[in-house]
Amino acid sequence: MIRLENIWKQFSGKQVLRGVSFDVRDKETLVVLGKSGGGKSVLLKMIIGLIKPDSGAIVVDGKDVTKMSYPELRALRFKFGFLFQGAALFDSMTVGENIALSLRRHTGYSNEEITERIEYALSIVGLENVTRVMPSSLSGGMKKRVGLARAIALTPRYVLYDEPTTGLDMETADGINLLINDLRTLLGVTSIVVTHDIHSAFVVGDRFAILDQGVTLMTGTREEIQNSDNEEVRKYINSAIG
């Protein structure tokens, strides 16, 4: 269970978030919808303590992330897998090394176990025979898959997706959307997907939070937001579809 309560954040005088609140229930996929530059990536990073809000609380499994010490934050991060927008693969390492890094550092696995674990993580995201490949020679969609394999290598409880389909062609994007749904059934994870792509949002999401001008305009199921009377929500949905 993750709960964001009244999150405010400014960067050098620019107020990006002005009171964002929403809940993420266990095992669901919550989609945060909002325009580019609206602070969606900042929100995701706040959840694992990479950025501190100016005010507000972020409660993960009963504990406020904003009040955690550094050792507590490190422990918290084991519960999370994070897929970054550009995949953020370590470009000086092969695909296999990217995934092995955290396994080597944080587990007592033997080399064989690590190799097995890498193969397993890659098979879940639908890749094989790529462990020796350098990230620079992968396509955008494959990079995201590797990024996802790396994120789930330590079997997280939560997976955070930052614009998982942005910059991909339709077909590749659909593949990633299906993968998000697969991961959820296979691993039973709770997910937050941040996107401005409303089509993807409806494929993967159980509930939705619409972010606009730094506040949560509305949270609800697909029916609830599509049937909303709120003028701003209607405008947002129409402009996003149209």
């Binding site: 694992i48 991060r77 999370f80 927008q85 550009g86 953020a88 693969l89 550092r105 330590l154």
Partner: peptide
């Protein structure tokens, strides 16, 4: 710097590295 702007440093932190 390249690692910072491509979020590789954030990724390290997300993987519980210092």
């Amino acid at each position: 710097g390249t690692m910072r702007v491509t979020e590789q440093i954030d990724a390290l932190e997300a993987l519980a590295f210092d």
